[in-house]
């Protein structure tokens, strides 16, 4: 039997390699475990809905029709329509439309938003989001909640965020 002499240098490099591999495996396992917490398939309801005909909405009013089912207010101005998200930009409560005071007021922490969705009081850091709104082939309004427009990013100028009539 021949005894190979293992030098210190070789020994150290093997140890180093071993530990590196071990830690890499551990890191990989940890990443996979973390990834396990993010499901691949979501069973969530459809994110777009039909909201009737534009004539149904009165100028200068906030429609509460779709709030409870879809979390959307449809607002009709003289120029047209936009779909405001009924989710407070502060921590996600549902604000109430106070028609007397012409503002959306969030009951959780008191944020207030104007008719346009711009925040003006309370802790909300930014305006309400708007959703993509368009006219379907059947003449009905179609609101697509997967596409949102944020005022502070200048996205409200996007034609898809507003339905001109």
């Amino acid at each position: 039997m021949s005894k190979e002499k293992v030098t210190r240098r070789v020994f150290v490099s093997w140890i180093f390699l071993g530990w590196t591999l071990f830690l890499a495996c551990l890191g990989g396992l940890g990443t996979m475990l973390l990834r396990y917490l993010f499901p691949n398939v979501l069973f969530e309801p459809s994110q777009s809905f039909k909201a009737g005909y534009p004539e149904n909405y009165a100028v200068g009013e906030v429609s509460l029709l779709w709030k409870s089912k879809h979390g959307v207010w449809i607002v009709r101005t003289a120029e047209g329509l936009y779909a405001l998200s009924a989710v407070c930009t502060h921590l996600g409560c549902t604000p109430n439309w106070l028609s007397g005071e012409k503002k959306f007021k969030c009951p959780c922490h008191g944020s207030g938003f104007r008719f346009s969705g711009i925040n003006f009081e309370g802790p909300a850091p930014r305006p309400l989001e708007r959703f993509k709104i368009l006219l379907g082939d059947d003449g009905q309004i179609l609101v697509d909640k997967t596409k949102k427009f944020q005022q502070e990013k200048g996205e409200w100028n996007d034609p898809a965020s507003f339905l001109a009539i």
Binding site: L37, F38, P39, L42, F43, E44, P45
Partner: peptide, 13 residues
Amino acid sequence: RFVLIAGRFIGEA
């Protein structure tokens, strides 16, 4: 948020 509620919206998961 997604990790906590296992989805984009609050529900069963």
